[in-house]
């Protein structure tokens, strides 16, 4: 039995988790800073770093209490070291290094995006490589081919806005409180997705790239030019456009690469309309779509501990000089 402690402070959520044998989540706590940044309409990096320092220690105590384990029971420490806000990453990595040194346990540096993909392997017992992964969140829209463990090949990415960013900003245009994603999803449930046809950027392009900034502008102009538009219909039509592009391009690329499994992960993968669209279309293409549970979709540290377990098992350990990096670039396919 191996007990892993996961730490993620890559952006504006402070997350700590304890996971046994890479699968069994004993405790998984995340403290969102969203309310602290709301007045600025976005995350302020310096403020985020300050809040991580305040939050991480009570959170460490809380996960140990929830899981009824002592820190000394932990076999390894996994900490996200890229990509993210440098100041935020430094807090989690420093605590991870200090724990590794004080407990005399190995440290495992984790790529946050790889951990999102790995979350699907934690959630689905029978999921196996190879597969295609679509990672959608507030900061990323990334299509990755995953032929084996630790091999991530970039098939495509957004050229501008990420999916979550597009949804959040359109939600703001609709007057929804930030983060607008969940509110916009709820609003869209009762709206008519065919009330208006928003553009499907890059849907027809043969590559795996995406673009959502034009769609965001289209929603802004539609609301400006047509005062009779109904918010719930705009929300439904927007999500229909996003889902159409994501599903079409992902399934087309899965067919081209011969992948019969698609992993849909990242915070925006929690969106019900996008999931439904994948479910409906994937059957027609004979492709299996796997989603991690909702708790593993959004930023969390269980996925960090889970991936950390695989790396620990394979001896892929990090030193106390582990560096933090703002970016994580994947080699192209």
């Amino acid at each position: 039995m191996t007990l892993g402690l996961g730490i993620d402070t890559s952006f504006d959520d402070t997350a700590v988790a304890l996971v046994r044998d890479g699968k069994e989540i004993l405790a998984n706590l995340t403290v969102s800073q969203f309310a602290e940044h709301a007045e600025f309409g976005g995350v302020i990096p310096e403020r985020a770093s300050r809040l991580h320092v305040e939050t991480i220690f009570p959170l460490l105590e809380a996960v140990c209490r929830d899981a009824d384990v002592a820190l000394s029971d932990v076999d390894f420490i996994a900490a996200t070291h890229r990509p993210g806000l440098i100041g935020s990453l430094l807090v989690g990595v420093t605590v991870g290094k200090a724990l590794a040194m004080a407990l005399d346990r190995p440290l495992v540096g984790i790529n946050h995006l790889e951990a999102h993909v790995h979350a699907a392997l934690m959630a689905e017992e029978d999921l196996a490589y190879p597969f295609l992964a679509l990672l959608i969140s507030g900061a990323n829209t990334l299509l990755l081919d995953c032929p084996n463990f630790d091999v991530y090949l970039r098939v495509g990415a957004t050229k501008d806005d990420a999916v979550g960013e597009c949804i959040d900003k359109c939600g703001r245009h609709l007057g929804l409180a930030m983060p607008a994603g969940p509110a916009l999803e709820k609003l869209a449930l009762t709206g008519n997705p065919k009330s208006r046809r928003f553009p499907r950027p890059l849907k027809g392009s043969p590559d795996g790239d995406f673009s959502f900034s034009g769609l965001k502008t289209a929603v802004l102009y539609a609301l400006r030019d047509d005062p009779d538009l109904v918010a719930k219909d705009v929300a439904a039509a927007l999500l229909a456009a996003i889902a159409d592009v994501l599903v079409t391009k992902t399934l087309r690329m899965a067919g081209r690469l011969g992948r019969d499994t698609v992993v849909l992960c990242g915070g925006a993968a929690a969106n019900l309309q996008i999931r439904r669209a994948f479910d409906e279309e994937s059957e027609k293409h004979g492709v299996r779509v796997v989603y991690p549970g909702l708790a593993l979709c959004t930023d969390n540290a269980a996925m960090v501990a889970g991936l950390g377990h695989e790396k620990f098992r394979r001896g892929q350990l990090s030193g106390l000089d582990l560096a933090v990096e703002a970016q994580a670039l994947f080699p192209p396919l």
Binding site: V53, L60, E61, T94, A102
Partner: peptide, 19 residues
């Protein structure tokens, strides 16, 4: 130094917590 303070604090508080 903001970053320096966070590194020093995070390191020593963790050492103190564990030990």
């Amino acid at each position: 130094s903001f970053t320096g303070l966070r590194i020093g604090l995070a390191m020593t508080k963790t050492f103190a917590m564990v030990g």
